[in-house]
Nucleic acid binder design. Structure first.
Lengths: 104, 104
DNA sequence: TGACCGTATGTCAGAACTGACATACACTAG
DNA sequence: CTAGTGTATGTCAGTTCTGACATACGGTCA
């Protein structure tokens, strides 16, 4: 059911959707992507500050180097859950997370 | 692989784990749970402020009333992704999200 | 040059999450 | 009581995400 949107995009051309779909994609979906990117940046920065390799971080969160690379690149196959878990594993507090999401 | 932890908890009694596992559970995992709860509260508050029913919200995010109920109760089967998506669907900005995560 | 290190990208089987449904509960109004 | 409305809880098939692996890329050093 959620695949319908993807299908619409990957299909050849632009099947004209209604306004709701358009708004959904351009504003809400965009907001989610921005959020993911903020977390990705925050994670990379935090990891580097601690002078850890992606491999090190992977071990700390029981994941793999390749997934860490995807996390930091904002890859859409990475969940926000995983980003949050990783940040927390690097010692980020809720306030730290808040600052990462909405930098002042 | 991740189910091993759950198994350890649901099994009868407390099989003694090593320190790393203990710390993982008590601090990092707890932080994640707290985060989920903050988002759950934030979602419920925001929905009520808009005078929407769980059913309305479900329609807005293309989910179901039952899942919305689980979201708001901090049910562990609900991902942070879904909570974030729902909050954004209710018009929350990144700054709003930050405030929900780390209230001042 | 070649060996090494850190990072990036693609793939896939297995694990986790999802919407939907059924059903139960709590409350209110008739 | 009965009906209606909103919320809670359990289940499950289908979708999405995950760790692991292979492999490629870029830089450094000898």
């Amino acid at each position: 059911m959620r695949a319908s949107k993807k299908a619409k995009l990957t299909g050849r051309g632009w099947k004209v959707g209604d306004t709701k779909e358009f708004l959904d994609l351009s504003s809400e979906e965009a907001a989610l992507i921005e959020l993911r990117l903020k977390l990705a940046e925050g994670l990379k920065a935090r990891r580097k500050r601690k002078r850890l390799t992606q491999h090190d971080l992977a071990a700390a969160v029981q994941s793999s180097q390749s997934r860490v690379a995807k996390m930091e690149s904002g890859d859409p196959t990475v969940s926000i859950d995983l980003l949050m878990r990783s940040l927390i594993a690097l010692g980020a507090s809720r306030r730290d997370l808040a600052r990462i999401i909405a930098p002042r």
